[in-house]
Amino acid sequence: MKTFFSTLIILFLSINLSAQGYQIGDKAISFNLLNVDGKFVALDDYGAAKGFVIIFTCNHCPFSVAYEDRIIALDQKYKDLGYPVLAINPNDSLRAPSDSYSHMIVRAREKGFTFPYLLDADQSIAKAYGATRTPHVYILKKEHGALVVKYIGAIDDNHEEAQKVKSKFVEEALDDLLAGNNPKRDFTKAIGCSIKFEK
């Protein structure tokens, strides 16, 4: 009987471990983070939005850099349809110096980001969401006052050559949501830079 209980406890612990971060259908926490313009941005500020495209990204990672223009295009296309992009840099700048707040300001200006570029200073949002790499996308939809996770994954299926993309995962998921459906493909994987959590 004792071993039965310890097995149960071990099972419970391992389930808990594997459930770190969000799964599709989970309710996401809101946040209030410092933007590159010196002001704080909260999800609650967007009363008219239907949802959000949250993208964990950063300055130093070549995969993130390769996607900058595509992230701007996503924001320009979907902001007016109710799904604005919010980019979040979760990296510890002691481990990745070019991801510091001052470098974020420079990069946002250079590229002309049309969306907030926010600093997750204590990395609590990346940890709560379960983001592990950059870029890492979470699409949230407002449902009955909650922010429900509808898609987790990559932006599309070709990081290196944008002109050779076959499937635009995020756009397809957003189009499904805008048509009133859950995304047909709600989880994808990609190679990316590991998020530099504070040691």
Partner: peptide
């Protein structure tokens, strides 16, 4: 990568 990451290991999120 969405296809082959899982073929290396299903638990791999894709970070290196």
């Amino acid at each position: 990568a969405n296809e082959w990451i899982n073929q290396v290991n299903p638990s791999w999120t894709g970070s290196i």
